[in-house]
């Protein structure tokens, strides 16, 4: 009974967090960050707050399913098949790096480090997809600026995560 209860709880949380991640994605699409930083494809990565939150407070499997579901639904709403490949590759790579960091150095790295590395992996993944898809290395030129932006954006996202309380263990 206890196990079933836990399963139902985790399923419900996955649904709620997927919806929240989607909301973050849509909210982000409204913020014209490119007006301030003229770099294509730059964004804050608010949805990563949800991914890392689920990873730390619920579990790895749940974090992956939330991220993949978010990518699929967000592409259906916002983008195209191409943007789906980009967002899925970036999201999964970023989450994989976070999982590894959590496993290897949980006590030594806080959310800020996890998010900075996650954001860089996201950008590296997208550049890699872009290179593969277009067969050109020209986009690598964006890499320094994208990595620099991932330090700033990842830092902000990690900072937000530090202040979020763990609601998943609360009694209903």
């Amino acid at each position: 009974m206890q196990l079933l209860d836990k399963k139902i709880r985790s399923l419900a949380f996955c649904g709620v967090f997927t919806a929240l991640a989607l909301a973050c994605n849509l909210l982000e699409a409204l913020i014209p960050l490119q007006v301030f930083i003229p770099l294509p494809g730059i964004k804050l990565g608010l949805a990563n707050v949800v991914s890392v939150y689920v990873l730390y407070y619920i579990g790895e499997k749940e974090a992956f399913s939330v991220t993949v579901c978010r990518c699929i639904i967000a592409s259906l709403i916002l983008g195209s098949v191409t943007s789906f490949a980009f967002s899925l590759c970036g999201g999964v790579l970023s989450l994989t790096s976070s999982v590894l960091l959590k496993k290897i150095a949980k006590s030594r790295v806080s959310f800020i480090g996890v998010c900075v590395i996650g954001a860089s992996c996201h950008n590296l993944g997208q550049i890699a997809v872009c290179c593969a898809m277009f067969g050109t290395l020209a986009v690598v030129r964006y890499l320094p600026l994208l990595l620099l932006s991932s330090v700033i954006c990842g830092g902000i996202i990690g900072g937000i995560l530090c202040f979020l309380p763990d609601i998943t263990k609360r009694k209903v």
Partner: peptide, 21 residues
Amino acid sequence: IVALKIKKGDVFAIFIVLVLA
């Protein structure tokens, strides 16, 4: 972890990304 505490690993992570950049 519910506090803004920057750990050694964070500094290291940021440093690595900056070096990569």
